[in-house]
């Protein structure tokens, strides 16, 4: 029997500027039964000092400290080993919960009796806020994870891979087999989420908009940095395609390939933020990835892109095919 009802995992690296908001949120959401696990990933700013003070206001807080920076994936894996709860969710160190968020999460998964539940979230840019919804019209309706892949041409829940916008039942999902890929400095949550969808049986979406995601540029956000870590999406996409192929589910395979192509197009449109060397790397690796993907899925996926993207991706695919 786990000691807590819910564990919340937070990885923090030089998050001092934002941590006081997330810690204030944690203090507000704290109650008996909630276990907080924060991994300080070798921060050099005020993160450690703030976490030390937080133990006075956040009960059941465990702080784990990496002596050497290991990245968010390895930090989350380390936190997983300390989880002692029935349910699991995540919080990014620069985000926060609205009042009652965790209570609603737990009651939703209990009521719906599914393996995991997903939620909408709010994108915050200063005072500006925008609601981001799970691309899934079935709300509060338990359904098979296999039906979540949808059909090409429409976005689906697999295009919304925010692990913190959800809650996971660890009696139904075996966390020991669910490590984040520590080789990936960014995008490690993508294959993790795919693995959950492929291994779990049931899921549901609830219209909860009390997760606040800070869009404001964060100097430590590798996904926005335009450096070599930005290209980790390629390794993540290759892992996802392998997972989908192993599942044998044709809709999952089509969705995996389409998602990879979508991301290639996305990054090609923004390639000016990369150095010329990295731009070349992006094109070469993307071409190789698409050449290695199931070609019938590539051809099907290509048909749902707009003409501009189709031309761009088509040329890349031809390069890859040699």
């Amino acid at each position: 029997m786990p000691a807590h009802e819910l564990a919340v995992v937070i990885a923090a690296h030089n998050a001092g500027e934002f941590l006081r908001t997330s810690l204030a949120s944690m203090a507000r959401e704290s109650r008996d039964g909630i276990q907080w696990i924060v991994v300080d990933d070798a921060s050099t700013d005020s993160t450690a000092a703030q976490l030390e003070r937080a133990s006075a206001t956040v009960p059941h807080l465990t702080v784990l400290t990496n002596e050497v920076n290991q990245g968010v994936a390895a930090s989350r894996n380390r936190a997983h080993r300390a989880v002692d709860a029935r349910y699991l969710t995540y919080l990014d160190a620069d985000d926060w919960y609205g009042p009652g968020h965790l209570e609603h999460l737990v009651s939703s998964i209990k009521d719906l009796q599914v393996d995991f539940v997903r939620t909408d979230h709010v994108v915050v840019d200063g005072h500006e806020r925008r609601l981001s919804r799970v691309p899934e019209m079935r709300r509060r309706i338990p359904h098979a994870t296999s039906s979540a892949f949808g059909f090409l041409g429409k976005r689906c829940a697999l295009n919304y891979l925010y692990i913190w916008a959800g809650i996971y039942d660890l009696e139904r999902i075996d966390l020991t087999g669910l490590d984040f890929d520590a080789r990936l400095r960014t995008a490690s949550d993508r294959p993790w989420m795919w693995q959950v969808y492929l291994e779990a049986e049931s899921t549901a979406v609830v219209p909860l908009n009390t997760y606040f995601y800070r869009k404001t540029t964060n100097a430590t956000a590798l996904t926005q940095a335009g450096n070599v870590s930005t290209l980790d999406f390629i390794g993540a996409s290759e892992s996802i395609t392998s997972l989908a192929l192993a599942s044998g589910d044709p809709r999952a395979i089509d969705r995996a390939v389409h998602s990879a192509m979508f991301l290639v197009d996305f990054h090609l449109e923004r390639e000016e933020r990369l150095t010329p060397e990295l731009q070349e790397h992006l094109r070469a690796r993307s071409a190789a990835m698409l050449a290695a993907a199931p070609q019938d899925s590539v051809d099907r996926a290509l048909r749902v892109f707009d003409p501009h993207a189709r031309d761009l991706l088509g040329a890349l695919i031809e390069t890859g095919r040699g």
Binding site: T21, L23, A24
Partner: peptide, 14 residues
């Protein structure tokens, strides 16, 4: 201001 009083008090005490 959006922080907790306790946090400010602890930071000042430090």
């Amino acid at each position: 201001h959006d922080s907790r009083h306790t946090d400010v008090r602890l930071a000042l005490a430090a």
